[in-house]
Amino acid sequence: MDYGIDERVALVSGGSRGIGYAIATALLGEGAHVAVASRTQSDLGAAAERLNAVAPGRVHAISADMTDPASVQNAVSEARERFGPISIAVSNVIGHVIDAQKEGTGPGAGTFATIPPDDYRAEFKQLFVSAWALAAACLPDMRAQRWGRICNIGSMVAREPATHLPHVLPNVVRPAVAGFHRMMADREAEHGITVNNILTGAILTERNRSYWRWLAAERGQTVGDVISAVDRAIPAGRQGEPVEMAALVSFLCSERARFITGQSIPVNGGDSRHI
C-alpha cells in the first residue's frame, strides 16, 4: 500500500531508541525525510548511523531537550533547514515513572498522599508542554502546505489510569494531553492537518525492561516473574513490540488516513476495559 508520504519531512522526538526509533524507521521506509530529536547525545549518534544505513541522506539527528520550547523551536528550524518544511510531527516524550536506571529516584514514586504538588508541574512540562511546543512550532509549515500530521505518543493511562503501578503523575497529565490534541484536531482539520493520540499499552522497550527490573526489586520478585505476570494480564498474552506502535503511527501519518483525526487509539493487545 502506498502511504503517499514520499519526500515528506518528519520530526520524531525521542527518536533515538525504542518506540521513537521504530517510528523513524517506518517513516523512512515510506520515503519520508526524518529528523530524530533526542536528549541523549550518545544514543543519538548510534541511532542516526543505523538509520542512515537504511535510508542514506534522509536522516538528520538533532540533540534537543524537547520539554524546553526554545530547544524545540531550534530543533524544528534545524530540521527545516536540512530537509524543508515539516509535514509530520511525532511527539514522543516519556512521563516520570521510576525505573532501574534512575534507581528509584526522581519524581514518579509515591501515591496521591505523598507526591509533592510541584511534581505535577514537572510532569506537565514533561508531557504537555513538550507536545504543545512541538505542535506550535510545526503548525505554521503544515498550514502553509495545507497538509500535516500530528501524532502524540500518549499512554493507555489517559483513558484508564493505572492504579496497580506507581503511575500517578502520568495518570493525571496524560488525559489533559489527550484533550489538548482532541481540541487541536478540531481547529486544524480545515487546514488539512490531522491530529491523533496513541494510547500506548505495555510495549517491551529497553526503557520498559528497566522499569520491570525496578518493579521486580521493589516487590522482591524476579524480573521474569514480573514480565510474565504482565504478559498474562494482557489478552494477547504478551507485551507489544515497538514496530507494532510504528505500524499504526506511520499509517496515521499517511495520506490514506486523512479522514482520521481527533482520535485516541490504543495499541495494547486488548488490555483495556472501556467500550
Binding site: 489510569p161 488525559p175 489527550a178 481540541m183
Partner: peptide, 22 residues
C-alpha cells in the same frame, strides 16, 4: 471536547478526572 473557548479549563479537568480516579 470542542474549541468553543475554555480550552485549559477542559484540559485541567481531564487531568482532574485522572487525579480523582487515583
Amino acid at each position: 471536547l470542542d474549541t468553543e473557548g475554555g480550552e485549559m479549563d477542559a484540559a485541567v479537568t481531564l487531568g482532574m478526572l485522572g487525579l480523582h480516579k487515583v
